[in-house]
Simulated scan of single mutants.
Amino acid sequence: MPFSSSHVFPWPPSSSMAVFMDLNIRVDPDKSKLQRLIDTAAHLGFSTVALNYVFEPSTKKKQEIPVPTPISELIGELPVVQGRSRPIRVLNRLTVVTSDASHFRPNAAEYRRFDLLAVEPTTEKLFHAACMSYDVDIVCISVTEKLPFFFKRAPINGAVDRGVLFELSYAAAIRDSTRRRYTIANAVCLMETCKGKNVILSSAAEKALELRGPYDIINLGSLFGLSDENSKAAVSSSCRSVLLHAETRKTASGIISTSRTDQQEALQDQTDPGDEPSAKRPKHS
């Protein structure tokens, strides 16, 4: 099967309809190409997407962290999400690819220009640091090469406890059969350790043809070792957890814990019938 500006993020109210998100669409200076990507995402039913600026520092020369272009300057008109009456929501995200400890600057003011902050560590030591101490929302798992280390339970559990999520992307698997093997192999290794907890699935798409619909991605999750429930969460409720973590990180640098009560869900149902039932409600600690 082929791999068929600062915001405050309100917690979406409940309903019977899922709210799907793709938190990794590669930003492109070609505005018409980017418009097609956003239009396609909305047509496929994604309510929220994040434009991803990838920053790969070099130890040989100083490089500036990119500045996100305002969404209004990149996209002429936000398309309405398929099956909904509201336009798609577009966020800005920064992903820092780290091969040296100096590449991630914990207190960099430039990071606050972005709605979401991710890090892609390339060594075991940096992966451990990202899970246990880096103030980020997402830890990206490489899908373009075989990982040079094995996942260990301690850092994985540390990230889960801190509310940090792991990201697997699938577009590279569409472009190249070798990368498809790496994608599946690295994903399976991650699932064996994290048991499907705190995982999001995203595209990292560079063009519209690389995007897949939410239910195709949910099916893809089974190849990665995710259960049906965790696969659906990986494109819906777990993505909401990322947004909530980002809000908390930027306001109070707190740790997120979540809980669920029937009374809270009943109150949500009375608020807005247009969004997904939340598997969890946030409680800040």
Results as ranks from 00 to 15, higher is better:
Met191Ser: 03
Ala185Tyr: 03
Leu190Asn: 05
Leu209Phe: 01
Ala208His: 06
Ser238Tyr: 11
Leu211Glu: 02
Val242Trp: 04
Lys197Arg: 12
Leu244Trp: 15
Gly221Gln: 07
Ala252Ser: 15
Lys232Trp: 04
Gly225Val: 14
Glu210Tyr: 09
Lys232Val: 10
Glu192Asn: 11
Ala205Ile: 07
Tyr215Met: 15
Thr248Gly: 00
Lys250Ala: 11
Arg249Ile: 02
Ile256Leu: 12
His245Phe: 05
Ile255Ser: 03
Asn186Met: 02
Ser202Val: 11
Leu211Lys: 07
Ser253Arg: 13
Ile256Arg: 11
Asn230Ser: 12
Ser241His: 13
Arg249Trp: 07
Asp216Trp: 02
Glu206Lys: 12
Glu229Arg: 15
Asn186Pro: 01
Leu211Met: 14
Ile218Gln: 08
Ser257Cys: 06
Gly196Ser: 01
Arg212Asn: 14
Leu243Lys: 09
Ala208Lys: 09
Ser253Cys: 08
Ala185Asp: 15
Met191Val: 04
Cys239Gly: 12
Leu220Glu: 02
Ala205Thr: 10
Lys232Ala: 10
Lys195Ile: 00
Ser241Tyr: 04
Val235Ala: 14
Ala233Asn: 14
Ser227Ala: 03
Val199Met: 00
Asn230Glu: 14
Tyr215Val: 04
Leu223Asn: 00
Gly225Asn: 06
Leu223Ile: 01
Glu206Asn: 08
Ser257Asn: 09
Asp228Gln: 14
Glu192Trp: 01
Asn186Tyr: 00
Ile218His: 02
Thr193Lys: 08
Ala233Met: 13
Pro214Val: 05
Arg212Asp: 13
Ser202Tyr: 11
Glu229Lys: 15
Ser222Met: 08
Ser203Thr: 03
Ser237Arg: 13
Ile255Gln: 09
Ala205Gly: 11
Leu243Val: 09
Asn186Lys: 00
Cys239Val: 11
Ser203Met: 06
Gly225Trp: 07
Lys197Ala: 06
Ala208Tyr: 07
